[in-house]
Nucleic acid binder design. Structure first.
Length: 553
RNA sequence: GGCCGCGUGCCAGAGUGGACUAAUGGGGCGGAUUGCAAAUCCGUUGGGUAAAACCAUCGUCGGUUCGAAUCCGACCGCGGCCUCCA
């Protein structure tokens, strides 16, 4: 069965039919780097990662004819490569949303102030030396932390980018490409310049693009009325339509600025993705490297890329604007572009938000976690990854500590299937579970059902053999949990201190006393010691060989 | 205020007209194992019965249908967007 996905653009389940099934192009809107990414950000990046891994899997089949998707003669079985690009947004966009990104404070400056305070308070991690008044240093600092977290959680694009940096391009290094695209939009009459010299703004003219609104289900009329009283002031009054969005802002005093035909300033929020996606995934449309950029002729009648993803909040305005500016820069006839013929990307993939313990995640509620927070608690990356991917991407997932514990146990169970030495192996069961797994994944990436298939198969495996190890390896190529880094336990003469549990001499003393009591068959005493440890917040487990594992209860 | 999505058992979470007696995992309960635990393995987990029959159940109320967790309507609750956000 070929892969079907829910396409936000058409609001339908559709077969995924890339231009070239052996080389699929995929762009994911990546992180902003003025703070650490949190688990909600990672849920959406991980959903994209699972999708990418599934398309690369030999188990995945793709239709090659949208009109006849189930025809076995028109199915692509591989081998297949996915070129997956995820950008780094290191241009500091503005805090003041109501004015359309032209006023307020630069987010990178806000981050700098926060870092400066942390530096003063001495709460920066040891070994960190970052100058809080240099926006580039701030961006690189958070970017490095993001890459580290991403690799720990098995984000393949981050692992690949270690060898090929062009897979995770930086917005600040893609400005010439953005300027080229803006220039083309102005040339073709889709953009206009407003405001006085010294404070000019280039806007995209939404009324010139008929299909504007089709991704988010908006119309220009509704956008105009919905804008209401919230859009006011000088920036709005110089626009031709309230939904017109900023492409370039002239502002010579801005913290990050570049020269352009419209004066020294900074790019708008949406243009960076168009430039980076085109220059890395569709080089005939735009080549932009190291300050040189060259646009191809605007002769496209087909989408530039196969697949585009981002969090659900990106649907409007970000992706809506990205579609508009991309089609108007590259398509032969932007007026004839329709959702059914594909706009800029063939398939639009939007994972939903993550809740925490049933609540919206927010700093004020104290339910706001980064992967780092969880690593520090001794929770291993595999458990976090599984917890974040095991709910269907189009539902609001609920992150809970109970769920994290469930995920941890599942991972351990799979490890046993993978690791335990061999029996005969059951090739029939293997082919059955591979088929069920593939059917679930191909059905709009139903990871829960796929995991259910793995679990019911795994519970029937008593003596794993070659067939079982082969199967679990194929599943994990997609789920991506078994190969992740595991936190090490600290081992002493008697204790094995689990992840996140510091070695403690008082605990050691009690363990020794307990061992002696058990040797003397004084179980009353040994049980009392176990209770004391429980009161201190530790759970213990006797290991073969006499050592005792110590974990947090 | 406008637009969109969701609501499943103790919890998480699949299931979108008949095989739902609701997948799967966790938790609970019983058993094996253990000095006792933990971990692991086996069984069980709406009510009812010896077993059945029967009754109840997928936010609430109503409707469509021979048949509804699934389709339609209203209401309630939650989430998203309506130029910060994954």
């Amino acid at each position: 069965m070929p892969l079907r996905l829910y396409n936000t653009l058409t609001r339908r389940l559709e077969p995924f039919v890339p231009a070239d099934p052996s080389r699929v192009t995929f762009y994911t809107c990546g992180p902003t780097v003025y703070d650490d990414a949190h688990i909600g950000n990672f849920r959406s990046f991980l959903a994209a990662d699972v999708l990418r891994r599934w398309i690369e899997s030999p188990l995945c089949e793709l239709a090659t004819d949208a009109a006849d998707p189930d025809n076995p003669a028109k199915v692509h079985k591989g081998p297949r490569q996915v070129v997956h690009v995820m950008n780094i947004t290191d241009v500091g966009h503005m805090t003041d949303d109501a004015a359309g990104g032209e006023s307020g404070e630069d987010r990178m400056a806000v981050a700098g102030r926060r870092l400066a305070e942390a530096k003063k308070a001495g709460t920066l991690p040891p070994g960190v030396d970052v100058n809080p008044s240099d926006p580039y240093q701030i961006a690189r600092f958070y970017e490095a932390r993001f890459r580290e977290d991403a690799v720990k959680l098995g984000l393949k694009v981050a692992m690949d980018a270690a060898g090929d940096p062009t897979l995770m391009p930086r917005a600040t290094e893609s400005v010439p490409g953005m300027i080229a695209v803006i220039g083309r939009l102005a040339e073709r009459g889709f953009a206009y310049v407003a405001g006085p010299i010294g404070g000019r703004a280039v806007y995209f003219d939404v009324q010139k693009f008929k299909a504007y609104g089709s991704l988010s289900g908006n119309t220009l009329e509704r956008l105009r009325s919905g804008a209401g009283g919230r859009v006011s002031g000088v920036n709005q009054s110089q626009k031709r339509h309230p939904a017109d969005f900023l492409l370039w802002k002239e502002d010579p005093r801005h913290v990050m600025k570049w020269p352009s035909p419209w004066g020294e300033g900074y790019p708008g929020w949406h243009i960076e993705c168009t430039a980076m996606a085109a220059s890395r995934l569709c080089r005939s449309a735009l080549r932009a490297d190291n300050g040189q950029s060259r646009l191809g002729e605007p002769t496209y009648t087909e989408p530039l890329i196969d697949l585009h993803s981002g969090g659900e909040d990106n649907i409007f305005p970000h992706h809506e604007c990205e579609i508009a500016q991309s089609c108007c820069a590259f398509n032969a006839d932007p007026a004839s572009v329709t959702p059914q013929r594909g706009m800029y990307a063939r398939m639009w993939f939007h994972p939903r938000f993550l809740l925490v313990e049933g609540d919206k995640m927010s700093k004020s509620k104290g339910n706001f976690y980064t992967p780092r927070d969880l690593f520090e608690k001794g929770i291993e990356p595999a458990a976090i990854r599984l917890e974040l991917i095991r709910t269907h991407y189009r539902s609001n997932a609920n992150f809970t500590f109970q769920g994290l514990a469930d995920s941890q146990r599942m991972v351990e169970r799979w490890r046993r299937v993978q690791a335990e030495p061999s029996g005969m192996g059951d090739a029939a069961a293997e082919s059955r579970v591979l088929r069920d797994f593939a059917a679930a994944m191909s059905d709009d990436l139903n990871v829960s059902a796929a995991i259910a298939a793995v679990n019911s198969w795994a519970s029937g495996v008593t003596t794993p053999g070659a067939a079982e190890q082969r199967a679990i390896q194929q599943f994990d190529a997609i789920l991506g949990v078994l190969g992740l880094e595991r936190p090490r336990s600290a081992e002493t003469a008697i204790g094995v201190f689990g992840p996140g549990v510091p070695r403690d001499a008082a605990v050691e003393t009690k363990l020794i006393a307990r061992r002696d009591a058990r040797a003397a068959k004084d179980f009353k005493k040994s049980d009392a010691i176990r209770d004391e440890l429980a009161a201190m917040g530790y759970a213990i487990k006797d290991l073969p060989g006499g050592k005792v594992e110590v974990r947090r209860a």
